[in-house]
Design a binder for these strands. Structure first.
Lengths: 245, 245
DNA sequence: AGCCCGGTCCCGCTGACCGGGACGCGAGAA
DNA sequence: TTCTCGCGTCCCGGTCAGCGGGACCGGGCT
């Protein structure tokens, strides 16, 4: 039995459990918003019959939508995803402060957490300008190239080895409690970020917040750093884990 | 045991497929953001061992997070959900207009679709005031009590029978192309909404947009209705399905 | 026509999943 | 203290849900 050539190419050591199969299928939808059976088969490496059966089943429970012969992620998944975001304690606590930061500065405010070497955005408050940024709620960006990412890395024992220059910057960030991104992710865009941590290095950061905008505007904003630090401190106070047990 | 009563799902007709089991478990997390094994068992009616096995498995693939002994919905689901929203063509087309509406009026702009008797919000653009509204991206509200909902109902063959008064209102809405919500969902809040449809009743509505705010402010806004209608028309033009086949 | 590609459906085989139940633990109650 | 209850975890033999090769159909090419 020769495995079919894959569209995306990734080692597929034969999924065994039903759950793994489902996950693999759902994951296949990243990067293309409509897939036919044949495409799913190529991407997942699953046998045609199996893929077909599972797709139909997922469509029945509305985890997928089926339109003619192409499948898309369905409403049920959107709803569950929205639930996750909504149920997040940190997000809840941060929301008013993000709005405040945006309102006062006119810049885009973010909330993000660290996941391995990437940041995942939990919230984003901004105006039309915000749509130009690559950050998306529920989206990922490499941590080392974002303000929030560096703020988080500086306050977390990093798993992998990092480049010399970055380590130096992280040490500096850790000391000052503020991270900067000067056009590293997007040309012309700068960010100022702070981790949400307890006073005096008590444990890892819960998340980080940042404020981003055109370099000129960010540089010109008075007292931005301390505003952000203050917001982060307030968020910590209302979202901090109560008992470490 | 007053708690147990609340938690018990209706007599389960025994789920057969693995997918059904998974769906049932995931669904159990609606309404409570952290569940222990025992709670999941009570809510789903699944056997303890099975529930335990599936929960662990879902946690492995990050569809759930496990913290000590309580499970929560995990990041992977959040990411998938965000993908769905992000991949939506209508949302893409509507976003700039929602921002524009918000910027010009200072009110909260929505984008929503109809699902049976409820509306599901796809986007929401607003300021801090917006957090006071019950609308949430990915959330549901009864269609008959919202502006977007009525705009959509008016342009869709309604499945179930509706009350006399509502039918009359819908006919009126259909004629004018504009729906109103005068404090029906939230006291003190009014909305003006328009469906995203082709000119001249060509097919059902793709979605609907609305603008909401304090009654006074909404009533005072000049030319709100025509602004919204115009935005809806523009969105239709860029998002309309190309070929009805 | 002949060919290819994609979707659907069938059906006998089998190993992934099932779930009752044993076990250990910690928190009250006796 | 000891008993008990509820909880999470783990085991293991039985079995059926799911598997997947392959037949079939239809449409779009050459």
């Amino acid at each position: 039995m020769s495995i079919a050539v894959r569209e995306h190419a990734a080692a597929a050591p034969t999924p065994v459990s039903m759950i793994d199969r489902v996950v693999r299928i759902l994951d296949a939808f990243e990067g293309a918003d409509g897939l036919t059976l044949a495409q799913v088969v190529r991407r997942t490496g699953l046998p045609r019959s199996s893929a077909h059966r599972i797709l139909e089943h997922l469509a029945e429970v509305r985890y997928l939508r089926r339109d003619e012969h192409t499948y898309r992620l369905g409403m049920r998944i959107m709803e569950l995803g929205a639930l996750v975001i909504h149920q997040d304690r940190v997000r809840e606590a941060a929301a008013p402060h993000l709005h405040q930061l945006h309102q006062v500065t006119g810049l885009v405010a973010h909330l993000a957490v660290l996941d391995d070497t990437q940041v995942v955005y939990l919230d984003k408050v901004g105006n039309r300008f915000g749509t130009l940024l690559p950050s998306r709620v529920g989206g990922r960006l490499p941590a080392a190239r974002t303000g929030v990412g560096k703020a988080l890395l500086a306050h977390t024992p990093h798993p992998g080895p990092l480049p010399e220059a970055l380590l130096a910057e992280l040490a500096h960030i850790r000391e000052r409690g503020i991270a900067h991104d000067r056009e590293e992710a997007v040309r012309g865009v700068a960010c100022v970020a702070a981790p949400i941590v307890g006073a005096g290095d008590s444990g890892p950061a819960l998340a980080a917040i940042s404020v981003c905008g055109p370099v000129g505007q960010v540089r010109r904003a008075p007292g931005l750093a301390s505003m952000i630090r203050q917001a982060a401190a307030r968020i910590w106070r209302t979202a901090a884990p109560s008992v470490p047990a």
